[in-house]
Amino acid sequence: MYSVNYHRATSVADAAKLVKSGDAKLLSGGMTLIPAMKTRLAAPSDLVDLSRIKELQGVKVSGKTVTIGAATTHYDVANDEKLKKACPALAHMASLIGDPAVRHRGTIGGSIANNDPAADYPAALLALGATIVTNKREIGADKFFKGLFETALKDGEIITAVSFSAPAKAAYEKFRNPASRYAIVGVFVAKGKDGVSVAVTGAGDDGVFRSKEIEAALVKNFAASALDGVKVPAKNLMTDIHASAEYRANLIAVMAKRAVAAANV
């Protein structure tokens, strides 16, 4: 690791000021950034740590509306009693991220700001039609995730929370990369007042996306059997040493089916 200046921000305003210094990066868990720095693949001059900012912590549920502070850890999302009632699928998804050490450090804001094409949260937020709240504005999930490690965030813009309306039914199923155990394919299905939404992570050439084919089949009938024979095209899916595009296409259908079955339990 190269030497770096570490700043612990006390408030969002404080962080917004600190992030202007040098070639600074925001740190919110650091589950991707710190390993990249240790292998010298990333070399920010300054780190602005958001993880101790009180206003960014915790899960709030008010009626159907769920709001999660950006610096809430995966562990806290997975174990929040209110969330487990309002949207158990998201709590369960958080419990599947990484390992216990990662879940105690990694945060929802850090994950979506990084937008790893194999991360779990992007699929959930896209399927839930979530809103990403920053210190400047509110951005719809469909506008927020722009591609591989790309988001709509501007330089220095800080995510403060995400919010969404709890769906009637939802579930997440992921098929893990045998080595990294990130998603080779992760499928989040949600059935809410605006219809059925199915988002896929780990597979897209351009990051998280919604599967039209799966959604079309489920709109008519939100049942696993509705997906029998549904084919997902391999076009625009990733091929790497772990999985071909065709294999990923197959897994999208299989994981979607299993997710729908879980959502209907």
Binding site: P178, A179, S180, I241, H242
Partner: peptide
Amino acid sequence: HYDASGQLLTASYMDYTM
């Protein structure tokens, strides 16, 4: 797993499955 140019693609636990 080496690619054709001789780069080791499985050079970390992210890609080499123990």
